[in-house]
Computed example of a mutant assay.
Amino acid sequence: MILGEYATLEAIESMRRKLGLDLPLGEQFVRFLRNIVVHGDTGSSIIYETSSRDLILDRAPVTLLLVGMACLLAILLALLLAILAATHKDGPLDHLIRILPAVTLGMPVFWVGLLLIMIFGVQLRWFPVGGAGEGGLDRIYSLTLPAITVAFSQIPSLVRSLRAQMLEVLESDFVVTLKAAGIPGRVILVKHVLRNSALPALMLLGVNTAYLIGGTLVVEQAFGLKGIGSLLFSAISNRDFPVIQGIALYCAFFVVVIGLLVEIASGYLDPRTKGEP
């Protein structure tokens, strides 16, 4: 692929030696691991002829900001909907909130993105239909619609989990005692009910991180964002294996980091999860 279709045998053999493909397989694997661990190097791009690490890190800010905004929106909207549903149990609002997530859960994320572009970008002209902006507030404004699209796929499961936990906590004995003591309902809801209900939803968000990243990469294509997603699809089209490999490894590392942060946060919410010293 590097040398082209009509490369000579001498050129191919020279390239094999340059890439270290003439070495034993075990030695090749050790060199591969050493380059990743020591230098964070996942090889050179076949198409761009530069480090795949540099290509990925150059596109990473857009993707990381999009993931962060999507997580924040998903958490805020899930909290709002779950609180409304739990505090209006079996009422019209509760039924509406329970039905909508069930319907939206089956919608493909790229289709949701195209729908939002048509409504809020083309018809209402509230948001740009593509691009990541020039930076600062303009970038955040440009990424708002893609972030809503990505968050859209995470909200249904978070709402169902958080609502179920909140209903269970609201019916517990200590909440009844707090109400009998005359503590305001808003204080009980925020300080006690939410804290005791958030752990399962937080763990679910951590588990869904891989799906969140995958949805982000697809949404980048729909909105024409120059992030890791567009780089990945370009690398797949051109069979640029080092770039594909690098993106997979960096995304896997990011998922592990998010899992660690979720464990730390769960220990703060419920000290019993820390285990015995």
Rank of each mutant, 00 (worst) to 15 (best):
L170G: 10
L178D: 10
P242H: 09
G214M: 03
E171M: 11
F241E: 04
V262C: 12
A248I: 09
L189R: 09
D240H: 03
T273E: 04
L204C: 05
V169E: 09
G185Q: 13
I247V: 11
A181T: 02
R239I: 10
R186E: 12
S266A: 15
N196D: 11
I258H: 06
Q165L: 05
S266Y: 02
K226N: 12
R195Q: 10
S172Y: 08
S161I: 14
L204V: 11
G246D: 07
A201Y: 05
M166C: 01
P242S: 01
Y268P: 00
A198C: 01
S157E: 14
E171N: 14
L249A: 08
R195S: 08
L194M: 03
A164E: 13
Q221E: 04
L261V: 13
Q245T: 05
L205M: 13
S266V: 09
S172L: 06
T177A: 09
V255P: 10
L231Q: 04
L202R: 11
V175Q: 01
L232G: 06
E263D: 10
L225H: 08
E168Q: 10
T216K: 02
K179L: 14
K191L: 13
V262E: 05
T209M: 12
M166V: 03
E168L: 06
G206H: 01
T273A: 13
L202A: 08
S161H: 14
L167Y: 12
L225A: 04
D173H: 10
L269W: 04
G246F: 05
I258T: 12
P184G: 11
L260Q: 06
S266D: 01
A248E: 07
G227F: 00
K179I: 04
R239D: 05
V190T: 08
L217C: 03
R272F: 14
D173R: 13
A201W: 02
